[in-house]
Design a protein around this nucleic acid. Structure first.
Lengths: 168, 168
DNA sequence: ACTGAAAGACACAGACT
DNA sequence: AGTCTGTGTCTTTCAGT
């Protein structure tokens, strides 16, 4: 194995990133085309492959690059339903919160989870095949989570924009 | 340029995917490690590189593979604030909706946008540097959008889980 | 659909500027 | 921190099965 694998590697050390203009250019290319070659990135940023290679290595190590991911079409994989679930907990102490976080990490249907301001404690982005699949998740998996208070669901009817692109 | 670039290529034709077990295995590897070599995927799925290469090409063409992306750390790029904005429109006719969608696509701070059920019409995921950055976006960019009714914002205080992983 | 071979491109490391 | 050079590996194509 020679080419970079990334992910599941060591946790990102908090070493100061200190990104210069070239680093940012490289990141902008990689952000949208993770599989292009170092040689091509080098050509686009007007550098030779060697320093680009070294810069990418540093960006991976410092954790600026989190993961090289392939984004798939959920519809074509029969996982076309997306639901936003708002969840409140019964108890809000630290221990109860950690247990909830653990439980959420065990639910594969939950692709994102955020701690939020407002009436509810958490927001979950859930993927399912269809309404029946979501119902099954709701009743048999989410509702089984300990310390769960209220759940309120908002259904996604259409995707207007779905990007991961960070502007910087 | 020889290696696959993906993205911005032709729109996905609606040709039936018809994925077999090997295709799904390949997708599962690519989903989390977009930069691993075809050779290594081949080894992991017990096939030679040639058919794996051809399968990946078909998956790209059919649109099952949407994009090869590099996921970056928003905090380290000084874009650590995430806000969920709920938006309702004043007018709901088709033309007004299309204009809104166009406007949203022009706002780089909006990384995701969904048409949703419930009280509001759309949900936006917005990224900004900090509160001042978000305020600037809210007042000078979002609020300038034509036909905008109410906006309600929920602030993300912590990221519990942030994945793109579709289970299939 | 897969195997095997073969050419060119690439990753990666080393010495040098 | 960059360029240049070399080696081994990989991608990609094309033959055959």
């Amino acid at each position: 194995m020679k080419r970079s694998t990334k992910t599941e590697e060591s946790a990102a050390p908090a070493t100061a990133p200190e990104l210069d203009a070239k680093d940012r250019e490289i990141l902008r290319h990689l952000q949208e085309h993770a599989r292009i070659s170092v040689t091509e990135i080098a050509a686009r940023v007007h550098l030779s492959p060697t320093p680009v290679h070294e810069r990418i290595r540093r960006l991976e190590e410092s954790g600026v690059i989190r993961q090289y991911a392939t984004l798939l079409d959920a519809q074509k994989l029969d996982q076309g339903l997306m639901v936003i679930c708002y969840v409140s907990l019964k108890q809000h102490d630290k221990k109860a919160g950690l247990k909830f976080i653990q439980a959420i990490n065990g639910l594969n249907e939950v692709v994102e989870c955020y701690s939020i301001s407002g009436e509810f404690d958490f927001m979950l982005k859930v993927r399912a095949k269809d309404m029946a699949g979501f119902y099954d998740f709701h009743v048999n998996r989410l509702s089984q989570v300990e310390n769960l208070g209220h759940v309120q669901s908002v259904f996604v009817m259409g995707v207007i924009k779905d990007t991961h692109k960070i502007i910087f």
